[in-house]
Design a protein around this nucleic acid. Structure first.
Lengths: 161, 161
DNA sequence: ATTTCTGCAAACGATTTGCACAGGG
DNA sequence: CCCTGTGCAAATCGTTTGCAGAAAT
């Protein structure tokens, strides 16, 4: 669960921005560092708080304007897990094909990676006459331990919703 | 692709409402008939239009208040396909485990059903110490035909986004 | 110098809600 | 009758955007 060196992520993004004629700014750097300085999921609002911890001048608007850039760069992934707000996941760099299980009891999000799921998705897509571009699997499930004990200790690996 | 007889869907929902101490009203009936009188996907706004085609007195608020009931009854499924608005899918009655492929070229939504996907999802869930409750697979993909010809005829089976 | 960025605050759009009356049981 | 359901319009809430000044190239 090690974080990717901030430096290299920054460099990649600086290249991405340059390629689009976009500029390198201190606010964007703060947002980038905040976005990839954790392996937890976060919302736009939470990212704003984290970025402000690095540079107090970062505004909400800039966060909302920067997030789509990070997503388009391919380094950050946007998740639609059902709630009203979008959730961002910085872990696709390390685990490009992982997916999510949401516990309906405690609402925590657990990540999983499964090569069979990946292969099967590709097969189905091709069989339908398409070329795979992006696959999203969301599993909602009840925690067995929670059912038995009324509480669970699965905290490790899971992020609160 | 036949629609389930409206009558039986209505009866099931009347039972569901009664079980909760909720009442049968003409507006709810219009919304139910509209919701299950098609196999196309729709948004809340589109359902409002369809319901008004049956009973002009149906209001937007009632549609928004009724939709969660239909979803909770298990007859209607809410989809988060990435857009700003939620999409509703009345086809889970006939195909309880189907999933969706969204064409990134034409934005159309195609449904598919695959028993292996179903089994694999269950396996992964159990392996993680959970009991499956609900699985959602969304595949975004490029249409091969569109890539070659610049247009495609896959309309059949697909609903426009 | 030229353009892109930024913060602010107002605008937006889908959805939710308070209210007073209508209507089901 | 009692209590839930309804339409209307206002309120919410996450997100987007117009603007004028600030900063990067």
């Amino acid at each position: 669960m090690a974080t990717i060196p901030r430096e290299s992520v920054r460099e990649v993004l600086h290249g991405f921005l340059a390629g689009r004629g976009l500029r390198k700014t201190s606010q964007r750097d703060a947002i980038i560092d905040a976005a990839f300085g954790t392996t937890e999921h976060y919302t736009a609002e939470q990212l704003l708080a984290m970025a402000r911890g690095i540079d107090t001048s970062v505004s909400r608007a800039t966060v909302y304007r920067t997030l789509p850039l990070l997503v388009e760069s391919g380094l950050l992934r946007e998740l639609d897990l059902g709630g009203a707000t979008k959730i961002y996941d910085p872990n696709f760099l390390e685990h490009p094909t992982h997916n999510h299980l949401v516990c309906v009891d405690c609402k925590r999000i657990f990540e999983f990676e499964d090569p069979n799921m990946e292969l099967l998705g590709n097969c189905i897509t091709r069989r339908m006459g398409f070329s795979p571009s992006n696959k999203t699997v969301k599993i909602e499930a009840r925690c067995d331990e929670f059912q038995l004990r009324g509480s669970c200790r699965k905290a490790a690996g899971g992020a609160p919703a």
